[in-house]
Each structure stands twice: as C-alpha cells, then as structure tokens.
Simulated scan of single mutants.
Amino acid sequence: MTSTVPARGTLSQALGPARAGKAPAADGSALQAVLLDMDGTLVDTEGFWWDVEVEVFASLGHTLDETWRHVVVGGPMSRSAGFLIEATGADITLPELTVLLNEGFEERIEQDLPLMPGAARLLAELYEHEIPTALVSASHRRIIDRVLKTLGPHHFALSVAGDEVPRTKPHPDPYLTAAAGFGADPVRCVVVEDTATGVAAAEAAGCQVVAVPSVAPLAPAPRRTVVTSLEEVDLAFLRSLMTKTR
C-alpha cells in the first residue's frame, strides 16, 4: 500500500521513511494495522505528567490531592488541566497552564525517557514484518515529535496527536483517523492502550484492544484482552486476536 504524506498540522502526519505496509487482505480476515498509544504504553511517562502537574501547581501555591491522579491520567490535556484548575481554584488560564505543563514535560523527557518493557522489541518486529503501525496519542504534536526521536520515527508510518483532531480520547476520532490513514477497517485494527480513557476511544472506534494497565487496573471485556506487560505481546499474538473477530 502506498501512503500519502499529509501536510503538517492536518489531522494525521506520516513520518520519515516508515513503510505503510501491505494492502488489507481481500478476505478481510487479516490484521490490517496496529495502533499504539504513547504515554504509559510505549514510554514510561504517565508518572512524569503527574510530577509536572504537582510541581506547576505548587509554584502556583496549590497542593494536588493524590486521588486526582486517576482522574487526569490518560486523558486530553484540556480535560486534565481544566479539572485541576477547577479543583484547586488556581488563578491561571487553560492556555497558560497548557504551556507550562508541556514545557515541564519536555524538560523531564530531555533528562530521561524510559521505554516500557517489551516496547523496543515489539516495534522492531512490526517494522520488520511491514505491519502498518501508527502512534496515536492525546499528547500534543510538540511532545509526540520529541518522543519519536527516542522511539524511532521509522517505526511509524503515521501519527495522530491530541491537538490535531476535533475530539481526542475518549472519543473515537484519533483511532478512526489513524485507521482511515491506512485505508484499514477499524475492526481489523488492534489498539494497544494503558488507560480507561484510551481503551474507551479504541472500543468506540470498533477496534480490537490490548490493554496494558499502567496506573489503574482494567478488566477484560468483549474485544478487549488484558496483559500485564508488552513483553506478552508479539505479532503472532496480535494476529491471533483477529481470529476472535471472525
């Protein structure tokens, strides 16, 4: 399949020399694409976001309640930041807070950006077998582009950022956009996610889901398989999920 490269700033963006993969199977029974979340799924950064939020609000004279961590994890920045402003009564606008959080997060990942166990192996295997692979995140494009330097942009034929779609997770738009970018049927795509927000987006899009919980537990459900680590996930495993949809 030949992929087109949309202009920067559109809903999705093709990256580097990544291979878009082969055309969907004619019988509709094969795995057509793998769509991967970023924070907490491929890179161990969910804790980074919370640490930055705590530091920023401390500088504003507010202490965050640890119980709020589960409220803000995995969601779009507009929702998380908006919740924290309302909960604390901090005197800051949403755009101002968004800038501070993005800047603080970038400083963190410049110092250290650990991959989740099994992430590098999985990406290498998908690339080797020319499986259409997309990075789909609620993080903004500026953050995704920085993380891609570590993950290797060649591993992804397509990426979708939270600030490039009208509605980000938990809405299905990001995953529908990624599937459409490959000309794939969402039902024949496997999404790998770590939070309830991301899982909700993937399931609303009609995708098969592999949940790898990072902060809060997730339960198995129809079209949702829960694993403890990406070390349990390989191409054979992902392909086997398609047989469950037949």
Rank of each mutant, 00 (worst) to 15 (best):
L15R: 14
L84R: 07
A30M: 07
E232N: 09
D145W: 01
L122G: 00
A33H: 02
F48I: 11
R188N: 15
T177Y: 02
C189L: 03
I85F: 07
E232V: 00
L235D: 01
S214F: 00
V227N: 10
T243P: 00
P76E: 11
G152T: 05
V99R: 15
E53G: 02
D163W: 00
F156C: 09
S59A: 14
I85Y: 06
T93A: 13
R79A: 14
H140E: 14
A33V: 02
V190P: 09
V34I: 08
T45M: 01
H155C: 12
E193I: 06
A200Q: 12
Q13N: 05
Q32W: 02
W50P: 00
K169L: 04
L60W: 04
L158M: 12
L151Q: 09
V147H: 10
T133F: 06
S78I: 09
S137D: 08
D91C: 03
R121F: 07
L113E: 06
S12W: 13
T133E: 01
M242Y: 05
R79T: 10
H62L: 08
H129V: 12
A120V: 08
T177G: 03
E107P: 00
A180V: 01
V209E: 04
G198L: 04
L97N: 02
T243I: 09
P172M: 08
R246P: 02
H62R: 14
V233A: 09
P6S: 07
E107N: 09
K169Q: 04
V160H: 01
H140R: 15
C189A: 05
D37F: 12
A236N: 13
V43H: 01
A157W: 05
G61P: 07
A25E: 14
A184F: 05
R167L: 12
E193R: 09
A179N: 04
A7K: 07
E103H: 11
I144M: 13
E232H: 14
T225W: 10
K22D: 14
N102Y: 01
T4N: 08
I109Q: 08
G82I: 03
S159D: 06
V147A: 13
K169E: 05
T245I: 13
P220G: 06
A20S: 13
A138T: 15
A87K: 15
G198W: 03
L113S: 03
A219L: 14
S80F: 08
A134H: 07
M1T: 09
D185A: 12
M77H: 10
T98F: 05
R8T: 11
V52W: 08
H140M: 11
